[in-house]
């Protein structure tokens, strides 16, 4: 099975001082159906930039990103958007819209210029709301939603696109443990259904619990299985802390 999305020798840099500062270098990553991949690293290391590059929003400094064996930049934007959905860390509507209108934005790549929603679009929007357990929020205005509710609505927005490659930037950062759990379970179910999930996080628990593979973004870019990389030596180096195995409280959704 060929990868759905692939980074080949991908390098990402930002201009800085005399020479560019490399955030990611030499990344080879194959993303396939059912994958659950965590992008790990300290704040400011470049997780967001990597996700944006995988979404096609930024062009890598070197190497490239391929979507189904074609360079991502060569895809027609709407066709690309029907395959890849991206959940940014933060996005706010500028006017106070009801939640279902936000979710319906996920249908944009499927709509004509006049934005007329068809039956399929309505079904997908409703399904997405149900999937994140937000169907009761549908008609609530954005300003009346709590942080957790907003994140679920945004997640539903992403799911409504029916894309099979889902790139989530810190999807649980704003959520309490219960809501975070529900979001991640939802991702799990999607992966089981054949979607590919890539999520950026600095939360080791989250990675350990929900990822099969891990991309470490830090001083070096490392790719490996969760079992290989989520060990004290590597995580200690990545986050510049002393790490050791220990006992901790474990949560699970009821």
């Amino acid at each position: 099975m060929s990868p759905m999305l692939e980074a080949r020798g991908c390098g990402l840099s930002v201009p800085g001082g005399a020479a560019p500062r490399w955030l990611v270098r030499g990344l080879d990553l194959e993303i396939r159906a059912g994958d659950r991949i965590a992008v790990l690293g300290p704040s400011g290391a470049g997780k967001t930039t990597l996700l944006r590059a995988l979404t096609g929003l930024v062009t890598p400094t070197e190497g490239g990103v391929w979507l189904a064996d074609r360079p991502i930049a060569r895809w027609e934007p709407r066709a690309r958007a029907r395959q890849i959905a991206w959940l940014p860390q933060r996005a706010e509507p500028w006017s106070d819209v009801p939640a279902h209108e936000i979710v319906a934005l996920g249908r944009t790549p499927h709509l004509g210029a006049l934005a007329r929603l068809g039956e399929a679009d309505r079904l997908a929007t409703n399904a997405a709301l149900v999937q994140v357990g937000a169907e009761t929020l549908a008609h609530r205005p954005w300003s009346s939603l709590s942080g957790g509710e907003r994140q679920r609505v945004m997640l539903a927005r992403m799911l409504a696109s029916d894309a099979r490659i889902l790139l989530l930037d810190e999807p649980t950062a704003a959520l309490d443990v219960g809501h975070a759990m529900r979001v991640m379970r939802c991702c799990d179910a999607l992966a089981a259904d054949g979607s590919a999930i890539v999520f950026a996080t600095h939360d080791l628990d989250l990675a350990q619990r929900w990822a099969d593979r891990v991309v470490c973004v830090g001083a070096r870019t490392v790719v490996g299985t969760a079992a290989e990389l989520l060990v004290p030596e590597i995580m200690g180096e990545l986050f510049d802390v002393r790490a050791q195995w220990g006992r901790r409280m474990v949560f699970d959704a009821p």
Binding site: T55, I84, G106, T108
Partner: peptide
């Protein structure tokens, strides 16, 4: 950015 990710330039 979200617009761009939705295929709208």
């Amino acid at each position: 950015d979200v617009a761009a990710s939705l295929g709208v330039s």
